[in-house]
Design a protein around this nucleic acid. Structure first.
Lengths: 206, 206
DNA sequence: CAGTTTTTATCATTCATTGAAGTTTTGCAG
DNA sequence: CTGCAAAACTTCAATGAATGATAAAAACTG
């Protein structure tokens, strides 16, 4: 029996296929557009059958958001790691800082993907809807995490309002900037300012 | 030439068909579920061809949200009708009151539809995504309206944060209640309280 | 190697959505 | 009332996403 720490060929192959699907799909989306790219083309690009695509992703849209799960996990951890006595606004500002740093770093081969994704989400209604669904889910989880981090001090509704204000402000600021064709860097800077404004409005919770 | 104030047969017929499609679709969704109902069945129910369905609604999901457009218009009007000297929190509270009253009244044959829709949105991912897209659009428009109602006093970002907080708080409160099988009445009451909490956090804007 | 499990491929089907004609219905001018 | 033009419908055909079933191929186990 192999000490299961070393990943077998099977696992490595799966990762390679997954990566090939992501890369191929995003390249095609970028070149031809989302609607114009068919699953058959994506599958061909990665040398697998159309059917196989669906054992990696539940839908065509999902490929675009291949990394959002792990991002959210980090954010929830940040909230869970509230420092003793840290006020709500402090913790939230820390959350914003870490998330923006995350977004700006090229971690899992992101960056070009990040810009492409923003452009796609802005133009394709199907992707916009999916993005909002993911964001909504994130808000629920963040609200829950925030409420738990301040057990007894912050009601579920207050936590939801805080998260809603913060996410809402950032969301609108990002959208507005995307429509003006700003660079990713500028967008992140403005997002930070929007977050600061929103958090300032939350002082009453401290 | 007829004085075009009286709606012709053509127009009345169209309204009847539209209504038949809505009623039939919602009834089928309610009985068999959203995914399980096909467009062919909906069309048959209203005695039209499948193709015709698409000249009334752009997609299967749209039927469920047949009345959201007019609701939003009312909300925007409320914001535009800011009374002289009225503080932000006052106007927003007024907006909440009017919207909730709207939701509770049975206007355009709603009510049963309202409960059905809430249940459907809660269980069908496709509808959830659509609802969030509509809500997002609404937030953008409300933010804009709020910013304009307080030209010079409220920045776009502040307006977005305010709307984000309010909508976010209500949204989460409604979701939480829906999951607990509350009646529409209870849901609306709790929503009002959530709104009050959120608005309290916005006092700094006054 | 032989047996077992996992992953793919192939095939077939359903269903939403869209485009292109061609028909029917309605509104209206004379 | 008649006939024409516009509007609304129907039929037909096609595309493409998604899913289920079954068989073949690859990788893992001992």
């Amino acid at each position: 029996m192999v000490v299961s720490g070393s990943v077998g060929l099977r696992e490595r192959k799966k990762q390679r296929t997954r990566q090939a699907l992501i890369e191929g799909a995003l390249r095609l989306f970028s070149e031809k557009g989302f609607e114009e790219t068919t699953l058959a083309e994506i599958a061909a690009e990665a040398d697998v059958s159309t059917r196989t695509f669906f054992s990696y992703f539940a839908s065509k849209e999902e490929v675009v958001f291949y990394d959002t799960g792990s991002r959210l996990d980090l954010a929830v951890e940040t909230l869970a790691g509230r420092r003793p006595g840290e006020p709500v606004t402090g913790l939230l500002m820390r959350l914003v800082e870490e998330s923006l740093r995350q977004a700006a770093s090229y971690q899992n081969l992101t960056f070009e993907h990040a810009e492409l994704r923003m452009r796609l989400v802005l133009t394709e209604p199907a992707l916009q809807a999916r993005a909002l669904l993911l964001l909504f889910d994130s808000q629920l989880k963040l609200s829950k995490a925030l409420h738990e981090a301040y057990a007894g001090e912050l009601s579920p509704v207050e936590a939801s309002a805080a998260v809603g204000a913060l996410v809402g402000a950032i969301k609108v600021s990002v959208i507005a900037n995307l429509e003006r064709d700003r660079s990713l860097d500028e967008i992140l800077t403005t997002a930070r300012r929007a977050a600061e404004v929103a958090i300032a409005g939350l002082r009453s919770l401290d």
